[in-house]
Design a protein around this nucleic acid. Structure first.
Lengths: 341, 341
DNA sequence: CTGAAAGCGCTTACAG
DNA sequence: CTGAAAGCGCTTACAG
């Protein structure tokens, strides 16, 4: 039960010996890669069963076969955003006949030669890379060696034509903010932006600005703060606004997690939502419909996005081609936190 | 950008040639496995950097080194239960110096030789196995070959001494139900059990029964149905009860997901929680505190459990020993859905 | 401190 | 239909 006494591995040679054939033949019946006489086949299968043989994936890989598995690289894995995405990615991979391995890089920090990513060209047929989970240099290397990669929720760096799938952040945000001004006539709409460098955050802010502009409302820097797509950060930001006595009649929280933080801050300060201040989020996570009041937000179809990303990756692996950029549509979900009933 | 023109891989031989040394030397500087003259070392490092060399993990593995990575096997990955667990598992693995690979088996169905699990003895130093993600035969094989495995949220099959970490389900459930009768004097407490064969569900039911018994309340089979740890299933079950006109003054929902389903059913039927019927869950997922009313539940310290499981696995890998069974304590979280204020 | 060589467990031309 | 052999990219005794 430890590495001290190394396990006695059963190899293809053991099977071959037991079945009285060559290892080549065993390999053939396992992979169905050539005709094998029915009797021989039966012999081999029996030997495999008796010995409880399992092919060694690393050896297979080394010897040059495909892995039939896809890799997903994330910066982290603990947020509420992930379950639906993982569900989509997982289901689509499975339905396409691939296994799926997931690794959280935890940072796009410098690469260490002695400790390469446990997920890569060596154990995977292609990689789905979420936001900035790996350094750009690594992306370049992968692209350079023509390894199939698709980017997810981020665009390709300058000059690299790597396919990318993301979500219509800008139009979604714009729709949301337009609803706030059109349906409810709010004029001072605060915005909690996401983490710096995050593309989703960037485009949502563009959508916010466009909506203001369309309705002739000024963009007021005092009305934007960093919510970081994070409950605590958002709560702190709203606390701060409240302390400063900032005036606003609605908050666009950047994402649903930030909306929860904002809601907490608002409630603690005795503000009623939506009577005193309206609140909207983005993503429509599984929590949002259950908040009090239920959150008006944008359904970003995260699960669908996951499926689409895998679809492109599989296509890239099989045909060498994929859509350069797919932008998934977004949908306004009106509940009660915006003031609707 | 496809498999059609296979990528030109840079190998240790390329590095050796470039640096004018043998491949053995290159290997040594990468792994720091023997003294190498400073000059030689510099030469090699320069060559690695220039060529952008990455060691081939499968080859390393085959040649007999540890992988420095741990594997987590789950049946599925899309539930609200997972993010905190993954956070704990991930953090502890990282802090212990291991990478973490995750694979969703999706079923404990029969094993296919041609398509082995993408996660196993060949690319991992040890496996954490959640509930019933693999067939028992596979577990036996792993154990038999002395591969380090720890079971998570399930116990070892008869006769296999595989370490296991789980949660104090029984006493938690009992505490919860006792609160219901002691503090609120409910007498007809319905129970939504989890999926058949699930150990968590089994022990929670035992706790429920014990609590009833302690207070001299009868166990009434009419008051238990299957909620399956699932929103929709729980909602259907409660709908059914309501249709039948079953009388109950409280529901113990089995887990928080089921509690959400129950809440939905209750609200649609115009029942107020907790005035008309009280409701409690189990797990304390990130949603529970935000429900209306906030859910009384059991905090099962899922993130801590994840850390502990990895701790045991690492210990097993390093020393060959681990705690046979660790049962993590559980904590009552009183909010408003039970009738408290 | 460094290199030549065996071996890890497989797949796949190449012969037959 | 089947086997002998080379090769995948590394690590690690064994010599020196």
């Amino acid at each position: 039960m430890s590495q001290h006494k190394p396990p006695a591995r059963i190899t293809i040679a053991d099977v071959a010996r037991r079945a009285g054939v060559s290892i080549a033949t065993v390999s053939r019946v396992i992979n169905q890669t050539a005709r094998v006489a029915p009797d021989t086949q039966a012999l081999v299968q029996a030997a495999i069963a008796e010995l409880n043989y399992r092919p060694h994936a690393a050896a297979r890989m080394l010897a040059g076969r495909k892995t039939n598995t896809l890799g997903l690289l994330l910066p982290e894995i603990g947020a509420a955003f992930f379950p639906p995405m993982l569900r989509g990615v997982e289901a689509e991979a499975r339905e396409s006949g691939f296994g799926l391995l997931i690794y959280a890089t935890h940072s796009a920090s410098a690469y260490d030669v002695a400790q390469p990513y446990p997920l890569g060209e060596h154990n995977t047929d292609g990689l789905l890379i979420f936001t900035n989970s790996i350094p750009e240099a690594e992306l370049r290397r992968l692209h350079h060696m023509r390894f199939p990669v698709v980017l997810f929720y981020r665009s390709a760096p300058e000059g690299l034509d790597i396919p990318s799938v993301a979500v219509e952040n800008k139009s979604g945000a714009r729709q949301l903010v337009e609803h706030l001004v059109r349906a409810h006539d709010y004029r001072r709409i605060a915005f909690l932006r996401g983490p710096g460098g995050n593309e989703d955050s960037y485009w949502r802010e563009q959508g916010y600005r466009e909506a203001l502009q369309v309705h002739g409302l000024p963009f007021d820097p005092a009305l934007v703060a960093v919510g970081g797509f994070d409950r605590q950060a958002a709560q702190d930001a709203v606390d701060q606004w409240l302390r400063e006595g900032l005036e606003f009649d609605a908050i666009f929280a950047g994402d649903d997690d930030a909306a929860i933080g904002a809601l907490t801050a608002l409630q603690r300060a005795g503000k009623r939502v939506p009577e005193d201040v309206a609140l909207v989020g983005f993503d429509d996570t599984c929590v949002s419909r259950y908040l009090a009041p239920p959150l008006t937000t944008i359904n970003a179809h995260v699960e669908q996005a996951g499926r689409e990303a895998i679809r492109q990756l599989v296509r890239l692996i099989r045909t060498g081609q994929a859509e350069p950029l797919v932008l998934l549509p977004t949908e306004l979900v009106i509940r009660r936190s915006c003031g609707c009933t």
